[in-house]
C-alpha cells in the first residue's frame, strides 16, 4: 500500500508505504493531519494534488475492501443498534461477518434494540467499530478508535480487533495522539507532525535506529542529531547513529518510543526517517 499526496495546508508531501498485514499506529499531535490522512486513504476526500493508493488501487476502487471508522462516529440516530448492523449487512453484500459485528457492538451489556441516539459516546464507538470490523476488510482505517472507551472496553475491543486482524491478515492503521493507547498493539509506526511524515517504519527498526548519547563533547558528528541539550557539565543528544558509536566517549542508552516521538515533534527541523519497508519507492507498485 502506498500513499503519495500533496495537500495544503493540512498535509504536504506525505509519501510512505505500509507493508501488508501490519498493525500501524498513526501518531501525531492534535491537528497534525491524522484524520485527513485516514479520510484520504478511505476515499472520503479527494486530494487537492497528488495521488493516494490503497491496496494497490485508488481508494474508490478499493472501497469495498477498506473498513473505515471516522472520528465523529457517524451513525443514524433513528436506527436501533441491531438495525444499524443490518444496514452494514445490506451495504456489504457478501463481505459481512455478523458474528464479529455483534461481538464488537454488543460487548457485555449493549441492548440490540436501543436506539443510537440514546447511546453514550463509548457505546457509539463500539457500534461504529462493529460496522468497520464486520465488513471483513483487508485494510482497516480507524480514527481514534479507543478515544472514548473505558479501560475494560478498550482492552476487549483492541483484543477483538487484533483477533479479526490475525484471522484475516488485515492491515490496520489506528490513529491516536496518545502513544500509550496503541503501543502494545502495534508493530508499525507512523508519526505525523504538522502535515508531514516524521517517522515511518517497523517500531523496532525505528527504535533501534536511534540512541541517546551523553558525554563531554557537544560535537555528535557523524551521527544525525534529532535533539540535543546539556546535562550538568556534559552534553546529551538523541541521535541516529551513522556508523558505529564510540562507547568509550559516550554513554549510550536506548531511548523509549515516547522519548523518540517527543523529540521528533519538538524538533521539526530534524530529517524524517523511513526505515526499510516504509520508504516510498516510486518505481515500485504496491503489493498489498
Amino acid at each position: 500500500m502506498r500513499y503519495g499526496r500533496r495537500r495544503d495546508p493540512v498535509l504536504r508531501d506525505c509519501s510512505f508505504r505500509l507493508p501488508a498485514g501490519r498493525i500501524c499506529a498513526l501518531i501525531g499531535p492534535n491537528g497534525a493531519g491524522k484524520s485527513t490522512l485516514l479520510a484520504l486513504a478511505a476515499g472520503m476526500l479527494r486530494p487537492t494534488q497528488g495521488t493516494v493508493r490503497a491496496l494497490g488501487a485508488s481508494p474508490a476502487e478499493s472501497r469495498s475492501r477498506i473498513g473505515y471508522a471516522a472520528q465523529t462516529r457517524p451513525l443514524y440516530p433513528q436506527l436501533t443498534v441491531a438495525a444499524t448492523l443490518r444496514l452494514g449487512a445490506e451495504l456489504n453484500p457478501g463481505r459481512w461477518d455478523q458474528e464479529v459485528a455483534e461481538r464488537v457492538a454488543f460487548g457485555t451489556d449493549l441492548d440490540p434494540s436501543a436506539r443510537i441516539r440514546t447511546l453514550s459516546g463509548g457505546q457509539r464507538t463500539r457500534v461504529a467499530l462493529a460496522l468497520a470490523l464486520g465488513k471483513r476488510a483487508e485494510l482497516l482505517l480507524l480514527d481514534e478508535p479507543m478515544a472514548d472507551l473505558d479501560p475494560v472496553a478498550r482492552h476487549q475491543l483492541m483484543g477483538a480487533l487484533l483477533a479479526v486482524a490475525v484471522e484475516h491478515g488485515t492491515s490496520v492503521v489506528m490513529s491516536s495522539h496518545v502513544l500509550a493507547e496503541l503501543e502494545g498493539a502495534c508493530d508499525h509506526l507512523l508519526l505525523l507532525g504538522r502535515g508531514q511524515i516524521r517517522l515511518a517504519g517497523d517500531s523496532e527498526d525505528v527504535l533501534t535506529a536511534h540512541a541517546r548519547l551523553t558525554g563531554a563533547s557537544p560535537d555528535f558528528a557523524p551521527h544525525t542529531v534529532v535533539e540535543s541539550g546539556t546535562t550538568g557539565r556534559g552534553h546529551t543528544a538523541l541521535v541516529r547513529p551513522q556508523g558505529p558509536v564510540d562507547a568509550t566517549t559516550w554513554l549510550v542508552e536506548q531511548p523509549s518510543m515516547e522519548e523518540l516521538i517527543l523529540a521528533h515533534l519538538r524538533n521539526p527541523g530534524a530529517p524524517a526517517l523511513f526505515t526499510g519497508s516504509a520508504s516510498p519507492a516510486p518505481s515500485q507498485e504496491a503489493a498489498a
Binding site: 478511505a42 476515499g43 472520503m44 474508490a60 472501497r63 469495498s64 477498506i66 473498513g67 473505515y68 471508522a69 471516522a70 465523529t72 457517524p74 451513525l75 443514524y76 444496514l87 452494514g88 451495504l91 456489504n92 453484500p93 463481505r95 460496522l131 468497520a132 465488513k135
Partner: peptide, 14 residues
C-alpha cells in the same frame, strides 16, 4: 451535515 453519508460511503457503497 451530520456526516452520516460517510457511513454509507465507508461501507461498500460508492
Amino acid at each position: 451535515e451530520h456526516g452520516t453519508a460517510a457511513l454509507a460511503w465507508s461501507q461498500s457503497v460508492s
